[in-house]
Amino acid sequence: MAYKPQYGPGSSTIAENRRKQMDPSKKLEKVRDISDEDIVLLMGHKAPGAAYPSAHPPLTEGEPDCPVRKMVVPIDGAKAGDRIRFIQFADSMYNAPCHPYQRSYVESYRYRGVDPGTLSGRQIVECRERDLEKIAKELVATELFDPARTGIRGSTVHGHSLRLAEDGMMFDMMQRCILDKKAGMVKYVKNQNSEPLDKEVKVGKMMDDKWLKAHSTIFHSLVGVPFRSDQEYVEYVQRVHSLRTKYGFMPEE
């Protein structure tokens, strides 16, 4: 029988959203438009339109005779010898559409040649530069991103577990993005490394609370779906915890 991944337990909307995001057969809902140039500006690794600097010669110029290299099809950036670059996100606990662990799962299931790294309040994904641009565009333009509750932050990422500001924006020590109250639009004035941008990058309107609650993948007992309300999830986590604890004592289950 062919293996069918289940992606995760749970019967709540949170669990459903998690499974939907992780499952590569399901298309992520596109929520906003962002241009290639804007993504390059946000990441700040090179000037828009500049050639990709390389870290090594293209793979076509002499590869050692290696069976593994023949077996693995390289991604475009690896073929061209691009540098490895990153994009990093901070997600608010207050119903952000994605969160660090979830992001790593999503990227591992959906993309090839990526190196996601999860930390408590932020998540970094590394990849060859030209492939990263494509991935970053998808991560920002789809339902995985909310301009107010998700931040593109290379350093000084503090904000995940803090209360929101009065206008609903997640705290950012460097205020990389500001809310244009008239237009209701969030715009980045600094790139992810806090360097001021020559031109503002608009990342769309902040989503309303109803949309966020329906699309969130974070349990939150006060503003969202409480973890304990999802019995199936609780049972699963308790089972994992129990087996891990008993492991050293030869579990017989």
Partner: peptide, 22 residues
Amino acid sequence: GPRIPPTITYGPAKGQPNPHEM
């Protein structure tokens, strides 16, 4: 509350002023 430094503390923009509405 969380601190808002007057200059950027880390990264390539370290030392540059950090304008912040708050």
